[in-house]
């Protein structure tokens, strides 16, 4: 049996990749992109599309998409770099801070890939459907 365990120290700063919300950043970027695209399209189609066409809407969506994709790729890159550090094999199931960091990075990386795919799906809807109707 192990004797005791480290007590939590509130005064020590926690590195960003050791926080649980790190894994939620990429899907949150997808969610913000999704909502921005939907709200922009809904407002544009109701208020402006009949007079001004859809060019501005497409421009806005392109801008949102660029920001979202770059953001998601950044999360994926940082997570992947953390993942490759050290010599850890999946499934990251040891009682070790490094294993926990690798697990979080691995999950964050996978979620980044999923978020990127889902974001591209949203973009494809604009590419394929084009306008409001």
């Amino acid at each position: 049996m192990r004797k005791g365990i480290r007590k939590h120290d509130e005064t020590k700063p926690t590195p960003i990749r050791e926080r649980v919300w790190w894994i939620a950043i990429a899907p949150s970027l997808w969610a913000i992109h999704f909502l921005a695209c939907y709200l922009s399209a809904a407002i544009w189609c109701e208020k402006f599309s009949s007079e001004r066409g859809n060019t501005t809407l497409h421009g806005l969506v392109a801008l949102y998409s660029l920001i979202a994709i770059v953001g998601i790729l950044c999360v994926a890159w940082v997570s992947y770099q953390t993942l490759r550090r050290g010599n850890h094999a999946v499934p990251y199931n040891f009682d070790d801070p490094a294993e926990r960091t690798h697990f979080l990075s691995f999950t964050a990386f996978l979620l980044s890939v999923l978020s990127a795919i889902a974001t591209i799906f949203t973009i494809l809807a604009f590419v394929l459907v084009g306008g409001c109707d």
């Binding site: 399209a41 809904a42 189609c45 604009f126 409001c132």
Partner: peptide
């Protein structure tokens, strides 16, 4: 609008 449907689809 068609585009809203497309996004959710």
């Amino acid at each position: 609008p068609g585009i809203s449907i497309g996004i959710f689809s």
